[in-house]
Computed example of a mutant assay.
Amino acid sequence: MSAGLIVLISELAKRGGWMSALLATLPLTSLLAIVWLYVDTRDTQKIAALSIDIFWLVLPSLSFFIALPWLLRMRMNFWLSLAISLAIMFACYLLMMALLKKIGVNP
């Protein structure tokens, strides 16, 4: 199913339009984790905690989607742009974790 979805998104992206972006933004991994956690534990408090943790950690991941197109539009090599964007995202994760710890949120 995952491979099929990736192929579908890639094919739609080749044709342009927003449908590929819409499909790519679906939080499928998070949804699957939440469903399996519920099936395994029936513990809605754990699901609520996981959902909040996912929320906090989605925020720094958005830096990737800001940096990558900017670097590519600056005509930087794709692989270098990808590496820099991932490094920026990782740095934002570290910053977010430090900030959350400082304000008493413990994801």
Results as ranks from 00 to 15, higher is better:
W36L: 14
L22G: 04
A33P: 02
L100F: 03
S30Y: 13
I47Y: 03
G16Y: 04
I88P: 02
A3H: 10
C92P: 03
L28H: 01
L71Q: 06
L22T: 10
N106M: 07
S85N: 11
W36V: 11
T41E: 02
G16E: 05
W36H: 11
P69K: 10
M74T: 02
A49M: 05
L23D: 00
L82Q: 10
S63Y: 09
F78C: 02
L12Q: 00
A49L: 07
S81L: 09
A48H: 11
A87Q: 01
V39K: 12
F90I: 15
M76R: 13
A21L: 14
T25I: 13
L5F: 12
S81R: 07
F64T: 06
I52K: 14
L59F: 09
K101Y: 07
R75T: 12
I9L: 12
L71F: 12
K101G: 13
I9E: 04
S10F: 13
W56A: 04
L50A: 14
E11Q: 14
A98K: 09
L80K: 15
L95S: 09
L72M: 13
K14F: 08
A83D: 04
S2I: 15
L99R: 00
N77H: 14
P107T: 12
I52W: 15
L71S: 02
V7Y: 13
N106S: 10
M19G: 05
Y93T: 10
A67I: 14
L95Y: 05
S20R: 01
L72F: 08
T25W: 10
A3C: 00
I54N: 11
L32E: 02
A91W: 03
L94S: 06
P69G: 10
A83G: 14
L31E: 10
W36K: 09
N106T: 11
I9S: 07
K46E: 12
I9P: 12
V105L: 08
I66G: 04
I66S: 05
S81F: 11
P27I: 11
A49F: 05
F90R: 00
R15Q: 14
L62C: 13
S63R: 00
L68N: 04
T44F: 01
D53K: 13
K46V: 11
L71D: 06
W36M: 12
S10I: 14
A33K: 06
F90C: 07
W18K: 11
M96N: 05
S61E: 06
L82A: 13
F55G: 03
F65P: 03
V7C: 11
L72V: 12
I54Q: 08
D53V: 07
A91S: 12
M76P: 00
D43P: 08
L100C: 04
V39N: 06
A24C: 07
S81N: 06
L23I: 10
C92W: 05
W56H: 09
I66F: 13
S10N: 09
I6E: 03
L57I: 07
M89R: 08
G17A: 05
G104W: 09
A87R: 00
A87G: 12
M1R: 03
A33I: 13
